[in-house]
Amino acid sequence: MKKTCSRYRSEDISRFVDNELSQARYHELAKHLRDCPDCRSLVEKYKNLTVMFNDHAGHTGLKIDPAALKQNLVITTQSSPKKILGNIYLKLASIAAILIISLFWFQGGMFRSTGPSAIVTSVDTDFSSVMIIETQKKKHTIIWFSET
C-alpha cells in the first residue's frame, strides 16, 4: 500500500476517515494531521470519495426494479417457444428440401438430358426410303419408311 508519509500508510488514513481506528490511534493520527500536509490532503481525498459514493448509492437510476425484471423475464419465457418452433420448422423445411432434391436427382426427374426421345442406332429394311425425323418442340423421334 502506498505510504503518505513515513509514519502512516494510506490504509490508516482511510480507516481514520471511516472512523474505524481505536480511540487512542484516532487521536494520535488527528494530532499528526496538524503537522503533516500530505496526510491532510489524503484525508480530504478520502472524505470526498466517501461523499461521492454515498450520493451515487442513493441515486434511483441505479436501483433494480424487481417488478420490471420479473415482467421482462415472463415476456422472454413466453416468446421462447415460438423461436424454438421457428427453428424446428426451418430445420424440417431444410431437410424436406434436401430430400426432394435428392429423390429428383436419383430418379432423374431433374436435369433431364435434352437429347432426342430415341437414338436410332441401326435400321435394316428392304426399302430404300427411310427418314429419321426429330420434332422441334419435344424432340420426339419419328422413323418414317415406305413400303413401296
Partner: peptide
C-alpha cells in the same frame, strides 16, 4: 423393317 433404338 428392323431397327435398334435407345429410347429415353
Amino acid at each position: 423393317f428392323q431397327t435398334r433404338v435407345l429410347l429415353k
